[in-house]
Simulated assay, not measured.
Amino acid sequence: MTGNCNRIYITALLIIGVLISCQTAKQPEAVIPEHSMPKEKPVPPQEPELEPFAANWAGTTWIIRDTDNTKTKPFPGYRGFHLGRGGNFFLINSDTAVGGTWSAKGSFLRLEILQGRPELPLSGSFQAFKENEDRPQKIRLVPEHKSLEQGIIFESAAAAIAMEENHWIPKQLSGSEHVLWPASREIHLILLPNGEGGLWAVGYGGENRFRGDVFLDEEQFKTGPLASTKRSGPFLDFETIYLQSISNTTHYIQVDKDVFFYHETKPLTAFRVQMFE
């Protein structure tokens, strides 16, 4: 009898143990099909917060420097534009286009091209934003209805040397592409006091020396008749174009140690100063 009781007791314990293990067994986690799982939406990148840049735009120059790392860069090593005091829009180092006019209201600029298509997209309406607080001042020029990321960063530029009493060497001359440049001769232009409160334009064109009166103010450059010697030679074609270019100049823009001559807004000649010890 006792043996039967023991067997019944052991059997009961086994049944209770099985029931407890069934209740505490970990249930497998339900697997959610991948296609039914909610996907996180990508967060669009936030545009940088820049302050609109409003300035007295008239008479300001803005450039982009070349990024070429070679030791010898094509003259002048930058491109850009100048906003003339009379509303003229001057393109700097742009071979294929001629600037027209500009206007501004606060940080908004309207730039008009007279001819061609500039290498930089500088036609239409833009808003300017301040890019930095340092010097030189930098701005981001953003086309109308475009994001800040599509803007172009320019830095301010100005003259680093006086126009008068310096030795200017021509580096670019419109119309001279098919004539012989007098590279071995010291072609130059110098503006000197004439002793009567005005200025003379004096220089050398490759064959002859020349001189004439010149009127100069903040942007205007106008010469009187240029008198020259009468020598002939292999560089006379170049010299003729060079003197005609100076005579036709109405405006000039200085950038650092360079100067650019224009007839209205059409580029004519570009010079770089030659410094002497």
Rank of each mutant, 00 (worst) to 15 (best):
Lys71Asn: 09
His251Val: 02
Tyr78Phe: 15
Gln27Asn: 07
Leu141His: 04
Glu164Phe: 06
Lys26Cys: 03
Pro170Tyr: 08
Phe154Met: 08
Phe238Gln: 04
Gln27Tyr: 01
Asp66Ala: 15
Met1His: 03
Gly224Trp: 11
Ile92Lys: 01
Pro48Glu: 04
Thr250Asp: 01
Ala12Ser: 12
Arg209Cys: 00
Pro74Gln: 08
Leu173Asp: 05
Ser21Met: 14
Gly198Tyr: 07
Lys71Asp: 12
Ser125Asp: 11
Pro38Tyr: 02
Arg7Met: 04
Phe271Gly: 02
Glu34Met: 11
Leu191Ile: 15
Asn4Trp: 06
Phe126Arg: 06
Ile64Gln: 15
Leu226Ala: 05
Gly80His: 11
Ile20Trp: 14
Glu239Ile: 12
Glu149Asp: 12
Asn4Lys: 11
Phe129Lys: 04
Gly124Cys: 06
Gly124Gln: 07
Glu219Val: 08
Arg140Ser: 02
Lys138Cys: 09
Leu120Met: 14
Arg135Asn: 08
Phe126Ser: 04
Tyr9Pro: 00
Thr2Asp: 06
Arg117His: 11
Phe238Pro: 00
Gly151Leu: 05
Arg140Thr: 10
Gly100Lys: 02
Tyr252Arg: 13
Asp95Leu: 04
Val255Thr: 14
Leu226Lys: 09
Arg85His: 05
Ala104Phe: 09
Glu119Tyr: 11
Gly100Asp: 03
Phe260Ser: 03
Glu177Ala: 15
Thr249Leu: 04
Leu14Val: 15
Glu144Gln: 13
Ile253Asp: 01
Arg272Glu: 08
Thr11Lys: 02
Glu40Gly: 13
Arg231Lys: 14
Gly206Gln: 07
Phe108Trp: 00
Gly86Asp: 11
Ile139Lys: 02
Ser125Tyr: 03
Arg140Asn: 00
Leu114Ser: 14
Glu164Leu: 11
Leu189Phe: 09
Ala12Asp: 09
Leu141Pro: 04
Asn208His: 06
Val273Glu: 10
Phe235Val: 07
Ile246Tyr: 03
Ile161Met: 06
Ser232Asn: 05
Ala159Lys: 13
Val255Ala: 07
Pro118Met: 11
Leu111Ser: 10
Tyr9Phe: 12
Phe221Leu: 15
Ala227His: 07
Tyr78Gly: 05
Ile63Pro: 08
Ile153Pro: 05
Phe271Leu: 08
Ile15Ala: 13
Ala162His: 10
Pro44Ala: 03
Ile169Ala: 10
Ile16Val: 15
Leu199Gln: 05
Thr250Gly: 02
Pro74Cys: 00
Ile161Gln: 09
